[in-house]
């Protein structure tokens, strides 16, 4: 059967081994255009490594990673820069550059990714637009250390989406935040997904984050999230995945996730429902 749209991201039997520790073992999956994938797993289950492998930051020990149809595993670091410019990544703990102001941080991908080639006079308007998007207007001249954890996370989201990447990866965006701030962050992620129709991978250990991604959408007129009616999010929709000790033990939609008999999978669902 001919497939009209190749997957945006494709893992083929990917294993990552550090010294003696297996971080990922034989993970295979595909993410299609516009799809959201929620990856659940405990600490140390290989969630972060999976995202880093999708960016080419970590080289798989075996297996293949395809992004936009190109095999990352055979590429050199300099070739990878072009692919990475089409991927937005939000790191755990934000990973903003301490020595740069918020403005310089958000401008960083515009100025340093060669394939983006943003004209210098466009940088500032785009930075301002991205910061307005995350509702962080007057912080341009501040340093990351002057902001609270939630604000840093928002600035990092601005840096992630400033280049309008078609694929975005979020590594535990709500970790260590209070419930209200966490909700604001999730709102921003869903807004970024629905405004730009991006393919999204969200790594988390909180089931309610996944629930928001799967069932809510951003209403741009009212400027807030609203519950989507069944099937209203369109096709393809949200797929849940669960990782345990580097292995993919579950892949499916929310119904089958909630119906799963696996105690490990159940733990995520039960704990937060």
């Amino acid at each position: 059967m001919a497939d009209p749209a190749p997957p945006i991201l494709r893992f083929e039997n990917v294993s990552v081994v550090f010294d003696d520790v297996t971080a990922l073992s034989k993970v295979s999956f595909e993410a299609r255009q516009g799809e959201s994938r929620v990856i659940l797993g405990e600490a140390g289950s290989g969630k972060t490594v999976l995202l880093k492998a999708a960016l080419g930051l970590v080289k798989p020990t075996s297996g293949k990673v395809y992004v936009f149809g190109r095999d990352l595993t055979t590429m050199r670091e300099r070739e990878l820069f072009e692919i990475r410019s089409k991927i937005g990544m939000l790191f755990q703990e934000s990973a903003l550059f301490d020595s740069l102001t918020i403005e310089e941080n958000v401008a960083y991908p515009l100025q340093n990714q060669k394939s983006i080639s943003c004209p210098p006079d466009q940088v500032r308007p785009r930075v301002e637009e991205a910061l307005k998007f995350v509702e962080l207007g007057g912080t341009l001249a501040k340093f990351p250390s002057e902001l609270s954890g939630g604000m840093r996370r928002r600035a990092a989201i601005a840096r992630t989406v400033v280049t309008n990447p078609p694929l975005t990866l979020y590594d535990s965006p709500t970790a260590g935040l209070d419930p209200i701030t966490a909700y604001t962050i999730m709102e921003l992620l869903i807004k970024a997904r629905d405004v730009a129709q991006t393919t999204t991978l969200l790594v988390t250990y909180r089931y309610q984050d996944g629930n928001l991604v799967a069932n809510f959408r951003y209403n741009s007129e009212q400027g807030r999230l609203e519950r989507a009616h069944n099937g209203d999010l369109g096709n393809p929709r949200t797929t849940f995945m669960a990782l345990r000790q580097g292995s993919l033990i579950f892949e499916g939609d929310q119904h089958s996730l909630e119906a799963s008999a696996d105690p490990y999978v159940n733990k995520f669902v039960k704990k937060h429902s």
Binding site: L57, F81, R84, M89, A95, F97, D98, N112, Q113
Partner: peptide, 18 residues
């Protein structure tokens, strides 16, 4: 070292700098 443990080095690579 601080940049490494806070993933700033990874972020740098992700954002197009060696």
């Amino acid at each position: 070292g601080s940049m490494k443990v806070t993933e700033q080095i990874d972020a740098m690579r992700a954002l197009g700098t060696d």
